[in-house]
Computed example of a mutant assay.
Amino acid sequence: MSKVTNLNQARKARARAEKRAQGDENAARFGRTKAQKAREAAEAAKARRTLDQHRKDD
């Protein structure tokens, strides 16, 4: 005898799997650690300071 499948549960499980896959994709694309964010902010600040140092005053 075959196993009975609850279609409502199967639909919800598929939806959860799709949301999980989307979340994993977003984490890979946008997820950065706090240290990485701090390093990038420090690099941006240093670049801004360097640019300001080379500015001519009117």
Rank of each mutant, 00 (worst) to 15 (best):
D24Y: 05
K3V: 03
K12F: 09
A10F: 10
A42R: 14
A35I: 07
Q22I: 03
A45P: 00
Q22H: 05
D52N: 12
A38R: 10
R16H: 04
A15I: 05
A41R: 13
V4I: 15
D58P: 04
K34T: 02
T33N: 05
D57A: 10
Q9V: 12
E18G: 06
A47I: 11
R20G: 00
K46E: 07
N26H: 14
M1E: 07
D58H: 13
E25L: 05
E25S: 08
K34W: 03
S2R: 08
R11P: 02
R49W: 01
D24N: 14
K12N: 10
H54Q: 15
N8H: 11
K19V: 01
K37W: 02
Q22P: 01
R14V: 09
K3F: 02
R48E: 15
N6I: 06
A13V: 02
N6D: 15
N26D: 14
A21Y: 03
A44Y: 01
A47M: 12
R14W: 11
D52W: 02
T50K: 08
A41L: 11
T50S: 11
R11W: 14
A13I: 00
R39E: 14
H54W: 11
Q9P: 01
D24H: 06
A21W: 02
A35N: 09
N8Q: 15
T50R: 09
S2E: 11
A35D: 13
N8R: 12
R20W: 02
Q22S: 08
T5I: 06
A15R: 04
R55F: 02
L51G: 12
V4R: 11
R16V: 01
R55Y: 03
A21I: 05
A27S: 12
A28E: 15
G31V: 11
R14A: 15
A41H: 10
R32H: 14
K37S: 01
K19L: 02
R11I: 07
A28P: 00
E40P: 00
K19A: 03
R16Q: 05
Q9F: 10
D24I: 08
K12R: 15
K46R: 14
N26L: 14
K37M: 04
R29A: 12
R11T: 09
K34N: 04
A45E: 09
K12Y: 11
A44T: 02
A45H: 04
A28T: 13
K46L: 07
K19P: 00
K12D: 12
A15S: 13
